[in-house]
Computed example of a mutant assay.
Amino acid sequence: MQPRQEAGPSTRYATSEGLNLAYQVLGEGPGDIAMVPGFISHIEFAWHEPLCARFLRSLSDFGRLIAFDKRGMGQSDRDPHDLAPTMQQRCNDVLAVLDAAASDKACLLAWSEGGPTAIRVATMAPERVSGLILIGTAARFASAVDYAHGLPPFVVTEFIATLQQLWGSGVALELYAPTLADSPATRKWWATYQRLAATPGAVAASLRMQLDVDVRDLLPEVTVPTLVIHETRDMVIPVEAGRYLAEQIPGARIAEIDGHDHMYWVNHQAAKLSAIRDLLDEATSPRNTRTRRRRPVHGWPSLTETELTVAELVATGMTNPEIAQRLVVSPRTVQSHVAHILQKLGKSRRTEIAAAVTERATEHR
């Protein structure tokens, strides 16, 4: 017997820069939850996947859920002049949907590609954002000399070429939802979802734009309660990227889920929803009306608790692999921490970190 397909709520339209954006509203509660979509979306056909529908229904039990198709995707207008909207346009669209849904303030739940957009909205319009829930996402998707958590650009380019060639066939389900990769029903849904959500060219253009996305400089400026959810063996975005977000956003917490699915709704729904409920309780609490203190950019106060620990271990003479074993993280994560420490303290060598730690300890005696 086929699982019952839900129709979902009715679709409405917001207007942003002359384009129509499809959105839906479901549920009610103490606060609004606005979903910032990943690389593709179709708000109506999403309800045809039973697990996805169940997750969305559960979210609507926590508050008023607002979901939308970003421009160029799903049931929203295509821009005849541009296949890949800018980050600023993406942010403007989020605010336009909030306006249309009569939402003065919402907790932004962003998955995958939607993460950087949500982070930027939270810093450019903090009065409209009550909290951030960042699932399987990153501040930067491509690797760089000073950022080891991203994917090599050539890998992304090859992935885009494969998607464009096989789009609409259910391509990449093994990466996005390996738990469901052997399900014929899910593969059929995913193939149709791809065709309804976007054209091959639009997907390729949107993903190419992600090679230039980088909001790392905005992370210390986030002043709202933030939750990072990341599966430890995510097949698309490494968990280290999620850990980086949690370390760099002041006061952020992280929920690491033992799994390898990238799609936010596929597995471990109970654990994810429990963490989300806790964050929403904090975001809607009257005590969350004060502005949170922003971490400085340079000097000892700019270091996170993890970075302070790594600096102290470096000062003892431990190597990156030894520190990784002590902290139960990967050596690459430690390497990234050391790079951040050097940059924030204005140093160029590990020995200078050790000297600075010794000097700081002497000053505090």
Rank of each mutant, 00 (worst) to 15 (best):
Ala191Asn: 05
Val222Lys: 03
Ala22Ser: 08
Thr358Cys: 06
Gln269Glu: 15
Gly170Cys: 05
Gly29Tyr: 10
Glu49Lys: 14
Thr223Cys: 13
Pro225Cys: 07
Gly31Ala: 12
Ser10Ile: 05
Lys188Thr: 04
Leu166Pro: 02
Phe159Gly: 08
Leu26Met: 11
Thr226Ser: 12
Ser206Ile: 05
Val228Lys: 12
Leu245Cys: 05
Gly168Asp: 01
Ala22Val: 03
Phe159Trp: 11
Pro200Met: 04
Val314Thr: 00
Val328Ala: 15
Lys347Cys: 12
Ala356Tyr: 13
Glu113Asp: 10
Ile66Met: 08
Thr284Gln: 12
Val224Leu: 01
Ser41Ile: 14
Arg78Gln: 12
Val297Cys: 08
Asn288Gly: 06
Asn267Pro: 02
Ser58Arg: 15
Gly74Cys: 05
Gln89Phe: 15
Gly201Cys: 09
Ala7Leu: 14
Val171Lys: 04
Asp214Leu: 03
Pro85Cys: 07
Leu273Lys: 12
His262Ile: 09
Ala14Ile: 01
Asn288Cys: 08
Leu279Ala: 01
Ala270Gly: 02
Asp104Glu: 14
Trp47Thr: 06
Arg120Lys: 14
Leu211Glu: 08
Glu307Ser: 07
Ala270Cys: 00
Ala205Asp: 11
Gln248Thr: 02
Leu175Cys: 00
Ala53Gln: 02
Ser302Leu: 07
Ser112Leu: 00
Thr11Ile: 05
Gly201Val: 07
Ile323His: 10
Gln165Pro: 00
Phe68Trp: 14
Ala7Lys: 15
Ile43Trp: 00
Val155Ile: 09
Thr117Leu: 00
Ala144Cys: 10
Tyr23Gln: 03
Arg293Val: 07
Lys188Trp: 01
Ala324Asn: 02
Tyr193Leu: 06
Cys91Thr: 15
Pro80Lys: 04
Leu303Ser: 05
Ser76Ile: 04
Gly27Leu: 04
Glu231Asn: 06
Asn92Lys: 15
Leu134Asn: 02
Trp47Ala: 02
Trp111Leu: 02
Leu218Pro: 09
Asp217Asn: 14
Ala205Phe: 13
Gln164Lys: 13
Ala246Pro: 13
Leu345Ile: 02
Asn320Ile: 02
Ile160Arg: 01
His230Ser: 11
Ser58Gln: 13
Ser143Gln: 10
Ala148Leu: 11
His262Arg: 13
Pro225Asp: 10
Ala106Tyr: 01
Glu49Pro: 13
Ala67Thr: 14
Arg140Gly: 01
Ala246Gln: 13
Thr358Arg: 14
Gly8Lys: 10
Thr319Phe: 13
Ala96Pro: 05
Arg71Pro: 00
Pro3Val: 00
Ser60Asn: 09
Gln24Thr: 09
Arg326Asp: 04
Ala355Pro: 02
Asp182His: 15
Leu207Ala: 06
Gly27Arg: 06
Asn92Leu: 14
Ile353Leu: 08
Val145Pro: 09
Met263Ala: 15
Thr117Gly: 00
Arg57Leu: 04
Ala270Phe: 04
Leu132Ser: 08
His81Cys: 11
Val94Asn: 09
Thr362Asp: 12
Ala67Arg: 15
Leu21His: 13
Gly27Cys: 05
Gly18Trp: 07
